[in-house]
Design a binder for these strands. Structure first.
Lengths: 112, 112
DNA sequence: ACATAATGCAACCATGGAGTTGCACTCGGT
DNA sequence: ACCGAGTGCAACTCCATGGTTGCATTATGT
C-alpha cells in the first residue's frame, strides 16, 4: 500500500487487519476463555512479552479487548460483543451483495 | 471437525487477511454492486491491472469472489454468501466469549 | 524501605506483501 | 488472417509490521 502520509484505512479494514495475524488471533481466543495480563500470556506463548504487548495494543485500539488494572498488572479481556457486532455487520453486507447481484442477473434474463 | 476452536493453520485468519487490505476491500465492495473483469476494474481504480489481478486471485483463493469466463474476459462476482457465513461465525464466537467470561466473573463474586 | 515483578519505551532486524513495469500468450470479431 | 483487447507470468522495489533485545520505570507485598 503506497498511501503516503494520512493513510486513513477505513475502520472496517483496521479491524480485519487486527484479526488477520495468526498470533494475535490466538491471543484473542485465549482471552476469550479467561482474562490475562501480558506477562501471563507471555509464559503461555512462544513469543516475547513485548510482542504480546504490541498485539494487545493493536487489539485494544480497535476495541477487541478491554483492559483493567488490578494490582500491578494490566488484565485484558476479550470483547466478545465487539466481535459479534463486526460479524453481524459482515453478514448484513454479504446479504446485500447477494440480493443485488441476484436482481441484476434476473434483469439480464428477463426480456426474453 | 475443522471447528474445534483451537486448530492452528487457521483458514479463518486467511480470510481476515484477504479482507484486511483497503484496496482489496474496495474491489470487493465494487464487485458487490455488479460483476466486472480485471481490466474493467483497472479502469475504475488508480492501481494497475496486474495489482487488481493479484487482489482478485487472493479473494478467489478464499472464495470471496467467483469467476466466470465470458468471451475473452474473466468476469468476477462477489460471493456475498461467503461473507455472510464468515460474519455469522464471528458473531457466534464473540457470543461464546461473552458468555464464558460472564460466567467466570460471576463465579468469582459468588462465594461472598 | 527494598527487592522484585510487572509494564513501558526505543532501536533495530527481517520478512512479506502491495504495487510496479515489461513481455508473452490467447482468443474473438471483422 | 490479422489486429487488438484481455489475460498470465516474472522480476523488481519499497515499506509496513511482527519479532527481537536492552533498559528504564513503576508500584506491590513483606
Amino acid at each position: 500500500m503506497q498511501h503516503t502520509e494520512s493513510d486513513q484505512a477505513s475502520e472496517t479494514t483496521r479491524v480485519f487487519a487486527a484479526l488477520a495475524d495468526e498470533t494475535r488471533w490466538r491471543i484473542l481466543q485465549r482471552l476469550g476463555r479467561s482474562p490475562a495480563s501480558a506477562s501471563g500470556l507471555a509464559s503461555e506463548f512462544t513469543v516475547s512479552r513485548q510482542a504480546i504487548a504490541k498485539h494487545l495494543a493493536v487489539l485494544e485500539a480497535c476495541e477487541l479487548v478491554t483492559s483493567e488494572r488490578v494490582g500491578r498488572e494490566l488484565r485484558f479481556s476479550a470483547a466478545g460483543s465487539r466481535l459479534s457486532a463486526v460479524g453481524r455487520a459482515l453478514d448484513a453486507v454479504g446479504s446485500g451483495w447477494d440480493r443485488r447481484l441476484a436482481a441484476i442477473k434476473e434483469a439480464a434474463e428477463r426480456p426474453r
